[in-house]
Amino acid sequence: MAVRLTRRPLTLAEAERRLRARPGGAVVVFAGRVRRDRRRGSSVVALEYEVDRVPALARLRALERAARRRFGASELVLWHRLGRVRVGEVAVVVGATCPHRVEAFDAARYLIDELKTTVPIWKEERGRPVRRPPRRRARPGVRSAGSGRAP
């Protein structure tokens, strides 16, 4: 199916097979993977995706129709993982088969941008605390190296 919300792993190979099965001189596939993020004192090990399924599927199908019309796409994929997705795994795949590269790139860009901002899907970080080495206390009267501002 062009539109998919699933708890199962997504693969680029499967998306490519689907996109290459239809006529068109250009195939563009984009995959978004979960990346490690060490901000805010935690190490992300996974993202947990949540969806409001009925309006999400309706919106994905509307995006599919719009992309076929606007970019002349003969095939599309709009796939998103749900539930827990670990660092390194693919969370989202969009792709388009179009007559030429410009339309194919534009279609893929349109799909991922719209998906991120208009489809009711949310993510929450799952992580573990980062272990930091204990701070060394500076002895009175001794400035520790690297303290203070650079000149």
């Binding site: 978004g32 995706y49 998103h80 998906l115 901002t117 009711p120 949310w122």
Partner: peptide, 8 residues
């Protein structure tokens, strides 16, 4: 209630 979306 749908807070701002954050897929991808």
């Amino acid at each position: 209630v749908h807070p701002p979306y954050g897929g991808g």
